[in-house]
Structure formats: C-alpha cells, structure tokens
Simulated scan of single mutants.
Amino acid sequence: MTDAELAVEVAGAVATVVIRNPGRRNAMTPAMWRQLPVLLDGLEADPAVRVLVLTGADGTFCAGADLGDLDELLAAGDGSIAVAAEERLANFVKPTVAAVRGACVGGGCQLAVACDLRIAADDARFGVPPARLGLVYPTPTTRRLVRLVGPAAAKHLLFTGELVDADRALRIGLADELLPGADLAARIAGLTGAIAERSQLSVVAAKEIVDGRADDDRVAWWHGQVRASGEAREGVAAFHERRPPRFRWTPPAGR
C-alpha cells in the first residue's frame, strides 16, 4: 500500500493534477509515471476542461523520480516511462500551466518544462541532476530544455546539476513569472480563468503552431475552422456590444 498518487481536481473549466508522495517530497514513482498519460487522455477528451494545472502537494512541486530498478532504468534509455509521460504532457492539446513551489528537480523539472507555462513561488528551486548520478538526460527532454532556456543555460544546468533559485530561473526563462508564495494560488486562478474565457479555437491553434506541430495543410484547416465555427463573428460582435463573448468551439475528438 502506498500514498503516492496523482490526484485530479476539476473546478469549472480548470483541471488540476496534484503530485502527491508524502515522505518522498512528491517524487514520481513508476506507477505515477504510468498513470499520468491515462489521466491526460481523460482530461483532454473532456470538453468541459479548457486548462490543465500541474502542481505538487504540501509546498513541493516534485523532488524527482523514484529511480526504482536501476537496471530497468538503464535499459530503457530514451524509451523510459518518464519520457513517455513527459511527451504526453507536452502534446496535451489544451494549455498547461505548472504551479511551482519548493523543489522542482529531475523528473519534476522534466514535467514542468513540458508544460506551456511555469509560474513559480519565490521559494522554488529548479535542478537537473543526471551528472550527479552518472546518467544521460533523455534526448527529447534535453532538446525541450534547450528550446526553453537556450544552449548555455541548459549546459549549465546539465553540467553542474546545481539547483538554481527562482530568481535565476526567471532570468534564464525556466520560469515565466515569479511571485510571493502567498500570491501563487490567486495568480494561477486568475491566469487559468483568463485562458478558459478565451476562444479555445484560438488558444489550441496557437499552441499547436507555436510548438511547430502544424504544417501548411493543418494551418489551412485551422483557418477553415475559424470560418466554419463563427468564433470570430461572435468575438467581434461581443467586442462591439461590450459584453463577454460566448465562445463554443471545442477540439474535435481525436485531435
């Protein structure tokens, strides 16, 4: 019996996945890595959910991965369950926000980087420790980190394995916003609320295009969705009538 779990809380249009592993500073166990893609599949398919928040319980985001069976870990390489979970999170259709308090290290940093945005409390600490363990950071994970913070900052994190504080994380782009811990929950609620009110068509298309997953045919499909859905007409009408827009578009099943 274990208390380690990923708990899901849904409030309105916002789903929150909470990493919980008491006594291990919310380290991700093999079962939790396997559970995450399943949870994400369900939340992605739920039309009521417009934004996903990933956070940790009790003031810690995630202190890393439970290394478990070392031989199994070494044999898996880039095909590990952690990389599979990370890729599923990175490819989640809807916007994702990491709300980071305390330690965000190893597997925790891997998950935070896979989110679209990272909002950090001033007590957050980020680290990428494979060099301390004699491991090679997975290729997809490394490339995602480089795209986020640039080659030099990524090398610093990877070469040293040192923890960086929230101020440095903000400077290098590892965190998008930094604020006092007491203000984090309110900021996350405000940010996700604003995203949830926007046109999902605009937001989901923007995410896909920014992430480089939309070729010319797909971009043309998105413009076709704008014409067919009436989202733009509703948005313009709401602007002129000085009222909140009533956006109704939802991602088609399987997209």
Rank of each mutant, 00 (worst) to 15 (best):
R50T: 11
R50V: 09
V51W: 11
L52P: 07
V53S: 10
T55E: 15
D58Y: 05
G59W: 07
G59L: 07
G59C: 09
F61N: 05
C62E: 05
A63D: 09
G64T: 09
A65S: 15
L67C: 07
L70R: 13
L70K: 09
D71N: 13
D71R: 14
D71F: 10
L73K: 05
L73P: 03
L73C: 08
A75S: 15
A75R: 15
A76F: 07
G77I: 01
G77E: 08
G79E: 13
G79I: 09
G79V: 08
A82T: 11
V83S: 03
V83F: 01
A84Y: 09
A85P: 06
R88Y: 08
R88N: 07
L89P: 03
L89M: 05
A90S: 11
F92T: 12
V93W: 12
K94P: 02
K94R: 14
K94G: 01
P95H: 05
T96Y: 08
V97G: 03
A98N: 02
A98C: 04
A98T: 04
A98V: 04
A98H: 03
A99V: 09
A99T: 08
R101L: 14
G102Y: 08
G102V: 06
C104P: 10
V105E: 12
V105K: 12
G106C: 12
G107Y: 00
G108I: 00
G108P: 04
G108L: 01
Q110A: 13
L111A: 06
L111P: 01
A112M: 04
A112K: 02
A112P: 00
V113P: 00
V113I: 07
A114R: 01
L117K: 12
A120P: 01
A120C: 14
A121N: 06
A124R: 02
A124G: 06
A124P: 04
F126I: 07
G127A: 15
V128I: 15
